[in-house]
Amino acid sequence: MGSPPLIIVAIDGGAASGKSSTSRLLAERFNLLHVDTGSFYRHITWELLRRNVPSGERTALLAALPSLNFSTRLEGRSARMLIGGQPAGDEIRSQQVNEHVSHYAAVPEVRAILLDYQRGQTEVAKQHGFRGLVMEGRDIGSVIFPDADFRFFLHADPAERVKRRAAEGRQDSIAERDRLDSSRKTAPLACPPGAIDIDSTFLTLEQVVEKLAGLIAPKLT
């Protein structure tokens, strides 16, 4: 008999909705590859800012995109993007990147160059013996893996999300990022039709994980 098929878990939601923490814990519980696509957009943003290529200068931006050569390095259970063979550091979580990432992410061509790379993480999961992957972002269940085995959308009250960022010692323009991500023409942030919508405002991280895990577990038995 061949190996069982990979399962794909898609988790979408806005900033500080609990996507990353939930995804990491589900990856650990079910032996899944964790893929944080938000970090991909952050890495691209940092690289283009480093090259002085603004998101609003379309000609320069389109000229720069083909030179962004992507590869993947495994770090624990997480897939880490390399650009030109180099990983990003803590700078991708800086205030500067926070302020610009939604603008770059709104460019259709930026999203297009990442499409195959993101879908290709299934091969990374296979090569490293994972049972599947859990991918978090803003268009995973709608665009990247619309036929995922599980599609979840996490959301929380904006004030609660600001508190979560502050507890992490970070600042984030959550309301503005929500506005930009939800209003962009290409792959806007929204709960995909048929996805399971979960309000995490008054739930602990453990409660969110247990809720999702209870739905996923029967698929793996």
Rank of each mutant, 00 (worst) to 15 (best):
L115G: 02
V124M: 01
G132C: 02
R80W: 03
G129H: 07
Q118G: 05
S102G: 08
D90H: 12
G85I: 02
G132F: 01
E91M: 07
S102C: 07
Y117D: 06
Y104I: 01
V124E: 00
S78W: 00
Q86I: 14
R111E: 06
R131H: 12
V110E: 05
M81S: 03
I83S: 14
Y117M: 05
A106W: 04
G132D: 01
L82P: 03
R80D: 09
I113K: 07
V110I: 13
H128G: 09
G85Y: 02
A105W: 03
G76A: 06
L133V: 04
D116R: 12
S94N: 11
R111S: 11
V134K: 00
Q121K: 08
E91H: 03
E109V: 02
Q121Y: 06
R93K: 14
E75V: 14
I92Q: 00
Q95Y: 05
Q96L: 10
V134G: 01
R73Q: 13
R80M: 14
E75H: 07
F130V: 06
K126H: 09
A106H: 09
Q121F: 09
D116Y: 09
V101Q: 03
S94E: 11
V124K: 00
G120R: 13
A125R: 00
Y104G: 04
V107R: 09
Q95G: 10
D116L: 12
Q86W: 02
H103L: 14
V101A: 04
R93W: 02
E91A: 10
Q96H: 09
A79C: 10
Y104H: 12
R111I: 08
L82C: 14
D90Y: 08
T122L: 12
L82G: 02
R111H: 10
A125F: 01
G89M: 13
V101T: 15
L74S: 07
I113W: 09
G85R: 06
S94I: 14
T122W: 02
T122C: 08
V134Y: 01
R111T: 11
R131K: 10
Y117G: 01
L133R: 01
G89W: 14
E91L: 07
V124Y: 01
G76Y: 05
G120Y: 13
G120V: 15
R80G: 14
A88Y: 00
Y117P: 02
S78M: 09
M81P: 07
G120I: 15
H103V: 06
R80P: 08
G85C: 08
H103Y: 09
